[in-house]
Design a protein around this nucleic acid. Structure first.
Lengths: 142, 142
DNA sequence: TTGATTGCAAAGTGTTTGCAATGAG
DNA sequence: CTCATTGCAAACACTTTGCAATCAA
């Protein structure tokens, strides 16, 4: 599959900002992540990236994800059961609802909860470095 | 190490309630979990259980933990990095502060956050089955 | 040209499982 | 006696790593 030159150059400038060498593998992987809205796992990411860059190996996916993680471009989620799932890093933090039946992930955020967390931690003598709030849910039957 | 007969019979009655056969391995493991207040991982649990029942194998620890989990006696936490960590199931739900420097875990709870979670999920058409709120923190330097 | 990046295969973790032997009820 | 439970070793799923070949800069 060909990557639109529009999208491709957007990926390249993101990679430039992250200060890493521009390779087809990295362009493909980043493109796939930025296009996804379903928090894919590593195997799924490789599968999708292969459509753009057929040679990309699992090892490269893992290594590249780590580098993206370190440069803050992507975010890693470790939900219960199964491997890590990735998404583009967003401006504001958000939390996740995980559908226990389908594995589907929905994002939400609550400034109130956010603030309460910091308050509680602070009261106990801690600075919050990062945090996660996962709601494992089932769709309400109508 | 010998187990006090007091503690031992308390473990046995817990196991009776859970409807499983009483074995030395199960008594040892349950005793170790109920004594711990540091959310030990599987290897650490085996190490401690071996002091009471030297023959206990890793496989048995894993299998027994699963059975305890299913009968609701213990609770499993999957914090970032490293394997699962266990604790006795408690009456009321609580959340965790994980010290990113030491791995130390502190419990806290907030009814307000709890309620907000249910409200949000409900508004989005979900029932909350279970949930986790982990604050990865650093001690405030004085 | 030169060091970063890649693919491959091997190794590393944490966890589960098949099987024959053991032991609780 | 009988079936649940155990220890062992092998298998598993996910992730990392050593190495020689390749490729971006």
């Amino acid at each position: 599959m060909e990557l639109g030159s529009n999208r491709k150059s957007r990926m390249i400038s993101l990679l430039r900002n992250a200060n890493v060498r521009i390779t087809d593998q990295r362009i493909a992987l980043l493109s796939v992540i930025s296009e996804a809205n379903d928090h894919p796992d590593v195997l799924e990411l490789q599968k999708r990236a292969k459509k753009i860059c057929p040679s990309i190996s699992l090892a490269t996916v893992y290594r590249t994800l780590l580098s993206f993680l370190e440069s803050g471009v992507v975010h890693r989620n470790s939900f219960e059961g199964g491997g890590a799932r990735y998404e583009m890093a967003k401006e504001e933090h958000h939390d996740h609802i995980i559908d226990v039946d389908t594995g589907e992930v929905v994002e939400f955020n609550s400034d109130i909860i956010e603030n309460l967390q910091f308050e509680i931690a602070s009261k106990m003598g801690y600075d919050v470095i990062h945090h996660r709030l996962d709601l494992y849910c089932r769709k309400v039957s109508k």
